[in-house]
Each structure stands twice: as structure tokens, then as C-alpha cells.
């Protein structure tokens, strides 16, 4: 659980994350205030929100200063050589995240069986499997099995493409 130092080249991302945190705090405190301005509603939210906003602002300033000093300290520094890592090492996590978002959006539309099969197949490919027959076979069997288990073992009503 030891927190690592933020790499200098990534501080723009860090600034975006902190800005996102700050936006959430401001929105949530404002929404709570608009819902009810009584002290009983804001007893915990306002002090905690204020503290969180203060820390976010402090880290934002700290990160901005680090970014500036990095830019000053390395004028005309040569570009880092392009990474030679395989495709899945560089873009795998991002591709997996995107597929997860598409999966969740598609679940109610495509049915739990088909969406699960497509998601599993896509991620098997992302994680390095290249045998298409194996991908199709495993993904279809998995999708059908979990959809059936949800409906008949856990009694969770779910939309499916197949008449399970």
C-alpha cells in the first residue's frame, strides 16, 4: 500500500484526475445544499467536502508546480524512444476497459448470453488468445452457461437472446 511517486510525464493526467475529483465534490455539495440547506442534511457533507476540496486544491498546486519545474528543468530534452512493448502491454488495459463499457451498455440490448459471449471473446483476443475456433467455442459456452445459471440457479430475471 505504499504510494508511488507520480512520474513527471504523467502529471497532466494527474491534474485531470484532481480536477475531476474537485468537480465531483463541488457538484455533490451543491446538490446536497439544493436538496436541503438544513444543518441536519449538511452536518457531515460540508466539513468533509471542504476538507476534500482543500486537499485536492493543495495537490493540484503541488502537481502544477512539479509540471512547471519539469518543463523548466528539461528544455529541449530529447523525446523518449518509442516503447517496444507488445501491443497488448501498451493498449491492453485501455482496450479491456473500453470493451467493459461496451459490454455493460450492451447487456440489456443484446441479451446477457450474447453480450457475455462477445465480451469474453473480445477479451480473450485482447489477452493474447489467437485460436478463433477456441475463442468462439469457449465464449459461446461460457455466455450460455452463466446466463442459464443466473436464471435457473439464482432466479435473477435477465433478458437473453436464446430461449433459455
Amino acid at each position: 500500500m505504499i504510494v508511488k511517486n507520480v512520474p513527471g510525464r504523467a502529471t497532466w493526467g494527474h491534474i485531470a484526475l484532481l480536477a475531476g475529483f474537485a468537480a465531483f465534490i463541488v457538484w455533490y455539495v451543491a446538490d446536497s445544499f439544493l436538496a436541503s440547506s438544513q444543518i441536519t442534511n449538511l452536518l457531515l457533507i460540508v466539513p468533509v467536502g471542504g476538507l476534500a476540496l482543500f486537499i485536492a486544491a493543495m495537490l493540484l498546486v503541488q502537481t502544477g508546480m512539479a509540471l512547471r519545474s519539469n518543463a523548466r528543468g528539461r528544455p529541449g530534452a530529447p523525446e523518449a524512444p518509442a516503447e517496444q512493448a507488445p501491443w497488448r502491454h501498451r493498449y491492453g488495459p485501455m482496450a479491456s476497459m473500453i470493451s467493459m463499457v461496451i459490454y455493460v451498455v450492451g447487456l440489456p440490448w443484446a441479451g446477457f448470453d450474447l453480450a457475455t459471449a462477445c465480451f469474453v471473446a473480445a477479451n480473450m483476443w485482447i489477452y493474447g488468445e489467437r485460436n478463433l475456433v477456441l475463442i468462439a467455442g469457449y465464449a459461446c459456452a461460457f455466455g450460455a452457461a452463466v446466463a442459464a445459471a443466473m436464471r435457473y440457479l439464482l432466479f435473477v430475471p435477465i433478458p437473453t437472446l436464446l430461449p433459455l
Partner: peptide
Amino acid sequence: PLRFLVPSIMALTIL
């Protein structure tokens, strides 16, 4: 192999 395990676990956690 993780190429079978991880997609299955991800799908199971979401379901």
C-alpha cells in the same frame, strides 16, 4: 491461462 481466466472473472463480477 489468464486469457481464459481474466475475461471469465470480469464477466462473472459484472453479472
